[in-house]
C-alpha cells in the first residue's frame, strides 16, 4: 500500500521496571521499507507524531534476513520478525508495534530472550563430542532423517512459539515448543542419540512435555515453518515408551 506517511503506534517502556506507554510516529513513506528501516528513520529523526522531540525507539536486530530471531516483536498483534515485515505488504494503519509479551522488556521493543537459552541448557540441546582421546569419526546421518532434521534445525530461538502458546505463561513452568523441538532434533542425531534418555528425563518433570495442551498456535506462529506439533507428538511417543521402560526396569 503506498501512502504519504507510515503511521506507527509503538508501545514504549523506558526501563525494565517502569510502566509502558504509547507513542505515535509519522515517518515519510518510501517504497520497499520494512519495519526495521522505519525504526531506523525514527532513530535518525526522533520526533513523534505531535512534532515533539523524543528519545529514539530501542529495538534489537542483527541478521536482517529472518535467521537470527533478534528483531521479534508483535506487529499488529502478530509475533514476527521486524526485518521480514515489509511495509508495502501491511495494509493496516497505524502499524502497531509492541514488544513480545512473554519476555522481560529491557527497553521499548527490546526484550530479554535469555530464558530460552536456559531451557536449551536444561534439555541438553547439544551433541557430546569431547573426550580425553580421539574418538574417531562419528556415525553418519541417514539421509532420510537428515531431511526432516534439517527442518527442525532451522529454529532461531525467536520466541514466536512461546509468545503464542496459551500454556506458556507466568502461572506455568512450561519450557515451551522451541526447546522440545531441539530435544527431538538431538535425539535423532546419530551421536546425540547416545544421550537420548538424559534429554527425555529432562522433559518429563514439571514444566516439560506434559504441559503442552495441543492448542497448536506454535506451529502457526513459527516463521521458519517448523512442524513443532509433530515434534511434540513424536516426543510424546518417545517419553511414553521411555517412561514405561524407566518404570519396568527399576
Amino acid at each position: 500500500m503506498t501512502r504519504e506517511y507510515i503511521h506507527l503506534k509503538i508501545k514504549r517502556q523506558d526501563n525494565p521496571d517502569s510502566a509502558p506507554y504509547w507513542e505515535e510516529f509519522k515517518v515519510p513513506y518510501k517504497p520497499n521499507m520494512n519495519v526495521v528501516s522505519v525504526l531506523m528513520e525514527i532513530r535518525k529523526n526522533p520526533v513523534n507524531a505531535n512534532g515533539q522531540k523524543t528519545t529514539p525507539v530501542v529495538w534489537e536486530c542483527n541478521c536482517l534476513e529472518e535467521v537470527c530471531g533478534a528483531c521479534s516483536m508483535r506487529i499488529n498483534g502478530v509475533p514476527r520478525q521486524a526485518c521480514s515485515a515489509l511495509i508495502d505488504k501491511i495494509d493496516k494503519s497505524p502499524i502497531i508495534l509492541e514488544p513480545l509479551s512473554k519476555f522481560p522488556v529491557i527497553r521499548d521493543l527490546q526484550i530479554d530472550r535469555q530464558i530460552m537459552f536456559d531451557y536449551l541448557k536444561k534439555v541438553k540441546a547439544w551433541v557430546n563430542v569431547d573426550g580425553s582421546w580421539d574418538l574417531g569419526p562419528g556415525p553418519l546421518f541417514p539421509e532420510k532423517t537428515r531431511q526432516w532434521a534439517y527442518q527442525l534445525s532451522r529454529c532461531m530461538t525467536c520466541g514466536c512459539c512461546l509468545e503464542s502458546c496459551p500454556n506458556y505463561n507466568e502461572k506455568s513452568a512450561f519450557i515451551g515448543p522451541q526447546a522440545l523441538n531441539q530435544v527431538r532434533l538431538f535425539n535423532a542425531h546419530p551421536i546425540g542419540k547416545m544421550d537420548k534418555e538424559k534429554r527425555l528425563d529432562a522433559i518429563m518433570g514439571p514444566g516439560g512435555i506434559t504441559e503442552c495442551g495441543n492448542a497448536q498456535n506454535c506451529a502457526k506462529a513459527c516463521p521458519k515453518e517448523i512442524p513443532l506439533t509433530v515434534s511434540i507428538a513424536d516426543l510424546n511417543k518417545q517419553t511414553v515408551l521411555y517412561g514405561l521402560k524407566r518404570w519396568l526396569y527399576k
Binding site: 498483534g77 500454556n167 497448536q216
Partner: peptide, 24 residues
C-alpha cells in the same frame, strides 16, 4: 488445575485448534 494454568488467547490467535483448546 490444568484449566487454571492456561492463559487463553483465542481472540488474538483465532485458529480452529486454539478454539478447540479453549472449548476443551
Amino acid at each position: 488445575y490444568v484449566v487454571y494454568i492456561a492463559k487463553n488467547n483465542v481472540l488474538q490467535y483465532n485458529y480452529y485448534r486454539n478454539w478447540a483448546f479453549y472449548l476443551q
